[in-house]
Computed example of a mutant assay.
Amino acid sequence: MKVFSSSNEESLSRKLIEKFHLSEQLNIIRAGVLGANDGIVSVAGIVIGVAGAHQGQLALFIAGLSGMLAGALSMGGGEYVSVSTQRDTQRTMTQIQNERIQSDYEDELKGLALHYEHEGLTPPLAKKVATQLMENDALNVTLKAKCNIELSHYFNPWHAAISSFFSFMMGSLLPLLSITFIPYPYKVPGTIAAVVLALTLTGYTSATLGNSDRVKGVLRNLLVGVGTMAVTYLIGGAFG
C-alpha cells in the first residue's frame, strides 16, 4: 500500500488549488478560430454569390469589404455580450458560494472532501486535504471544485471580442483578396480553392484544440464552407 508523506500531501494540496489558467486562454483561442472560420465562410459566400450574379470587379470588392466589416463588428459584439454574461454568472456563483460558506461551513467542508474522494483520494486523506485547503482559502477552493471558477480569473469579454473581431478580419481577407485579384476566368474557381485550403487549416486547428477527430473536423468545416458558397453562387446566378 502506498504511503503518503507530509511533503507529498503538501505537494498534492498545491496541485489541487493551483491550476494553470487554461480556460481563459482557450476561450480567447476559441473566439479567434471561430472568428477566422466565420470570416472565411461568410465573406466567401458573399463574394461568390455576387460573382454568380455576374457583377463587375468594383461590386465584388465593395460587397466583400462590407461583409468583412459588418461580420467583424457582429462577431466582436456577439463575443463581448456572450462572455460578459459568462462573467456575470461567475460573479453571481461566487457570491452564492460565499454565502453558503458563511452559513454552513461544515457542510461545505464535507462536500469538498467527498469531491476529492471521487477524484481518487482515500476518505482520510480527502478530509485532511479538504480541511487544509478550506483553512487556506475556502471560497476559492470550493468554487474550483463545484463550479470550476477561480477568483480574479473571470473571463474577460474584451479579450474574446478583440480576438474574434481581428480574426474575422484576417479570415475574410483571403476570399476578398482572391476574388479581387485573381483574373477572369479563374476568379471563382481560384477563390474556391483558396477558401478550401483555409477551411482545411481552421478545421484542423479547431479539432486539435478540442482534442477531437481531425479528419471529421476538416470534413465538417469543408462541408459547411463549400455548401455555403454553392448556395450563394446558385442564388446569385438565378438573379444575375
Results as ranks from 00 to 15, higher is better:
E117V: 09
G171W: 06
L209A: 08
R214V: 00
N136E: 11
L174T: 10
N8M: 14
P189V: 09
L143T: 01
A126N: 03
G35Y: 00
E99R: 14
A63C: 07
D88Q: 15
F20R: 15
S6V: 12
R91Y: 01
V218P: 00
L112Q: 07
Q90L: 06
Q86C: 08
F181M: 04
N8W: 00
G56A: 02
F4G: 06
R14I: 01
K2N: 12
K128C: 05
V83L: 00
K19D: 01
L121H: 07
L151A: 06
Y80E: 00
A198Y: 07
I46V: 15
S178Q: 12
G32L: 11
R214Y: 04
R214W: 00
G76I: 02
A72D: 01
I28S: 13
Q90M: 09
H118C: 04
L133G: 07
I29G: 04
T131N: 04
T191Q: 11
T228N: 12
I162Y: 06
L177Y: 05
P157V: 07
S172M: 07
E117D: 03
T228F: 03
L26N: 13
K15N: 10
L112A: 06
L65G: 10
P124R: 13
G52T: 12
Y154E: 13
H118W: 08
Y105W: 06
G237K: 15
D213E: 11
T122E: 14
Y184L: 15
N140M: 09
A207M: 01
A238D: 02
K127C: 06
D38H: 09
G171F: 04
F61R: 14
G210Q: 08
V3H: 10
P185F: 01
L112K: 10
G237H: 10
T228S: 15
F165H: 02
F165W: 05
V43F: 03
L26I: 11
S66V: 05
Q55P: 03
G111S: 12
S164F: 03
I29F: 02
M68P: 00
V81C: 07
N37E: 10
G39D: 04
R220Y: 04
T94R: 13
A145I: 07
S6T: 13
G227S: 08
L12G: 03
V226N: 03
E106G: 12
C147K: 15
D38R: 14
A72Q: 04
A207Q: 05
H21Q: 15
G52Y: 02
V141S: 10
H21N: 15
A138L: 08
F61A: 05
L133H: 02
P189I: 09
T232R: 11
Y186C: 03
R14W: 09
